[in-house]
Amino acid sequence: MIADKTPAPQPAAHVRTIESAEIFRGQSEIVIRHEGFTYRLKITRQGKLILNK
């Protein structure tokens, strides 16, 4: 049996929304610098996102 995916909650109107395709630009991993720390945001084979410090 295939489980139905429930739609993700919609962000509030004032929250900026960016499509992941804009961020990744064909890559499967990006680096984000935030307050002196480096984070890696990855797309898994299953299409999920993982953020590592």
Rank of each mutant, 00 (worst) to 15 (best):
M1Y: 11
M1R: 11
M1A: 14
M1K: 13
A3F: 09
K5I: 13
T6I: 05
T6C: 08
P7C: 00
A8V: 15
A8N: 14
A8M: 15
A8Y: 14
P9K: 09
P9R: 02
P9I: 05
P9G: 05
P9E: 04
Q10S: 11
P11H: 05
P11E: 09
P11C: 03
A12V: 10
A13P: 07
A13R: 08
A13Q: 08
R16F: 00
R16H: 06
I18V: 15
I18H: 09
E19P: 10
S20E: 04
A21L: 11
A21M: 10
I23H: 00
I23G: 04
Q27H: 10
Q27V: 05
E29Y: 02
E29D: 09
I30E: 05
I30W: 00
V31H: 01
I32G: 00
R33P: 09
R33W: 03
R33L: 04
H34P: 00
G36Y: 01
G36P: 07
F37K: 15
F37H: 14
T38L: 12
Y39K: 06
Y39D: 07
Y39L: 00
L41W: 01
L41Y: 01
L41Q: 04
L41T: 02
L41N: 05
K42C: 03
I43V: 15
I43L: 15
I43H: 02
I43G: 04
I43E: 03
T44G: 07
R45W: 06
R45E: 15
Q46H: 13
Q46T: 15
Q46W: 10
G47P: 07
K48V: 08
K48G: 03
L49N: 04
L49V: 02
L49R: 09
I50S: 08
N52Y: 04
